[in-house]
Every structure is written in C-alpha cells, then in structure tokens.
Design a protein around this nucleic acid. Structure first.
Length: 171
DNA sequence: TCAGTGATTAGG
DNA sequence: CTAATCACTGAG
C-alpha cells in the first residue's frame, strides 16, 4: 500500500490478533486545535479479544459502554479510566465479535492516557469511524516493522491465563 | 509506593 | 440508591 493512504474497512474487519501487530509503524492522523493535522507514528498497542478474554471489557457482556465494541471494525472505543484518563481503542473484527486494540504509545508520546490528552481525544470520539472521519484516521507508512511482544499491562484482575497472553505489540 | 478522580457496573 | 472497581499517571 502507498504511504499516506488511509486504511480502509478491510484492514480493520480482520481478527484483532492480525490487526494489532500491523498497527505499530502506521500513522495516526488527528487535528490540532488550530485545525492543522497532527501525524504521529503508532509505537505500542495491545489486543483485547472477545467475550472469553477476561481482560476485555466485552467479557462482562454487552453494556452501554461496551456496545461500540460489538460494531464492525474501524470504529473507535473511547472510555475514561481512573476518573481522569481517556483510553483510545480501535474496534476490529466483524460485527458482533467484540474486539479492540488499545493505542498505548506514539513516537512522540508514551502512555495511553498521555497520548489522548496530547491529541485532545475524549468521549466525543467514541463511535467515530476511522474509515470516513474528517478528524481522525490511520494511514499506511509504507514501513513494515518487526514487532516485539509482551504481556498486557494493568490487567492483573484477568487471571493467570489471560494475563500471560503475549498480546502487547511494540516497536 | 500510593493517592487522585469520576464514569460505570452490579446489587439492594 | 450505595459501593466497588478501574486497559493510568505523577509525585515522593
């Protein structure tokens, strides 16, 4: 794919374990307060996969908050944690197959709560569609990175098995 | 190491 | 209605 091309629906409607390792290296495009575009390289993500995954919010069932995870891939799932940090997630997979990728780091900002503050991402982005949004999308970089993997962070409540899935991907 | 902070959820 | 929980961060 050409660098600078916006990723389309087909990229996102695959299984989260195919999509997540391909996101590091790609370019997240957002708009600054002055309307200019901000381009950041994604450096770290985590996969959350389905109702069986005890670390995935969808394992608690379909609720008002998790509803968007049940939509088709390409939409955003944005929620507040610890009363102050917005988490930016990209929904993946087919409709009714709740999965998402948490964006944990950008080239110029490490930390999932810090990067949303930097980019001004809040509740109003929940449900946004990356395929046709005018204010946020992902572009291909023409760069195929080798991802390292690790355990997901901050999910001790999910139990030994889910805690040790190597579903964190980073450059 | 640990407090801050408020939406979300389950339960009475 | 109440109370517990939380995919984090920054200060000490």
């Amino acid at each position: 794919m050409e660098p600078g091309t916006r990723l389309g629906r087909d990229f996102y409607i695959r299984d989260v374990l195919e999509v997540a390792p391909e996101l590091p290296g790609k370019i997240l495009v957002t708009r600054g307060t002055d309307g200019s575009f901000i381009r950041s390289q994604i450096t770290e993500v985590e996969a959350y996969r389905g109702t069986d995954d005890l670390a995935c919010h969808a394992s608690k069932g379909r609720t008002a908050r998790t509803e968007v995870m049940f939509s088709k891939g390409g939409h955003l799932y944005v929620y507040l944690v610890y009363g102050m940090h917005w988490m930016l997630n990209i929904v993946t997979g087919a409709e009714n197959d709740p999965q998402a990728v948490l964006i944990r780091g950008l080239s110029d900002c490490a930390g999932p709560g810090k990067l949303t503050r930097l980019l001004g991402i809040d509740r109003s982005f929940n449900g946004e569609d990356l395929v046709n949004s005018k204010r946020i999308w992902v572009e291909d970089s023409g760069f195929k990175p080798e991802c390292k993997t690790g355990f997901r962070i901050g999910i001790d409540y999910a139990g030994e098995y889910w805690k040790t899935r190597p579903w964190r991907f980073f450059l």
